[in-house]
């Protein structure tokens, strides 16, 4: 009986602390959903980094921290001098997230990580097209393809594919019509997503891309 109470208490403790962490993560993700500027993303990234410290086995804090750094890279695309520190940080975080996932049973989660990895490599291209482009451009494509293979129905992967199709010159395989089609598809898939801690970003990004067609 005593044992049972103790173990019951232990389980309860674990549950409570886990849910406390979950609420931390949830509040950070809610903040992330509202982030718009480099400052917003940088401050919420710090929160994810802190959460990672208390939950080193969870892939999500690392994933989100990496995503924040990728977003910052995209937001700073006209400021090549300051991107690299964020890209490198995001890359390390994405790699840690990847290492926490089971390659066989967590394909969907891996696809999320590879999508962010693709964005991070693209953010390195923004540093300087001439010097970083030849190396990191193909890497960004490679990660995108990997993500597509693992989960062809990830709306975020589809959004990123749309972004690439839109921003690549026609001669090198860009296609604005296909970009529109992909972004519309991605947006449709994101209509009914919840706002839990699971990755659910992409709606605003799709809308922003589609707004360029009006």
């Amino acid at each position: 009986m005593k044992k049972l109470i103790i173990s019951g208490l232990a389980i309860l403790m674990c549950y409570l602390s886990a849910s406390a962490q979950q609420t931390n993560l949830q509040s950070a993700v809610t903040k992330l959903d509202k982030a718009k500027t480099v400052k917003d993303y940088a401050s919420v990234e710090q929160e994810f980094v802190k959460i990672e410290g208390s939950q080193p086995k969870d892939w999500l804090p690392n994933y989100y921290a990496a995503y924040c750094n990728a977003r910052i890279g995209f937001l700073l695309q006209d400021d090549g001098e300051s991107i690299e520190a964020y890209s490198n940080r995001g890359e390390a975080q994405a790699k840690r997230a990847e290492s926490l996932l089971d390659k066989v049973n967590q394909k969907k989660e891996l696809a999320e990580v590879y999508t962010v990895m693709s964005m991070i490599n693209q953010s390195k291209v923004f540093i300087n097209m001439m010097t970083y482009g030849p190396k990191y451009g193909p890497l960004a494509q490679q990660y995108l393809n990997q993500a597509k293979q693992l989960n062809p129905n990830n709306p975020r992967t589809i959004y990123l594919a749309a972004w690439f199709k839109y921003n690549t010159p026609k001669l090198w395989g860009g296609d604005k019509d296909l970009a529109k089609q992909l972004a519309t598809q991605s947006l449709k898939m994101l209509q009914n997503t919840d706002t839990s801690v699971n990755p659910h970003w992409g709606k605003a990004e799709d809308q922003e891309l589609l707004s360029k067609y009006k």
Binding site: D79, G80, E81, S82, I83, E84, I127, N128, M130, T131, Y132
Partner: peptide
């Protein structure tokens, strides 16, 4: 002017 150029730094090709 190098292949490590960032932002508006010159690259060899520039």
């Amino acid at each position: 002017a190098s292949d490590k150029a960032k932002g508006a730094s010159l690259t060899a090709i520039d």
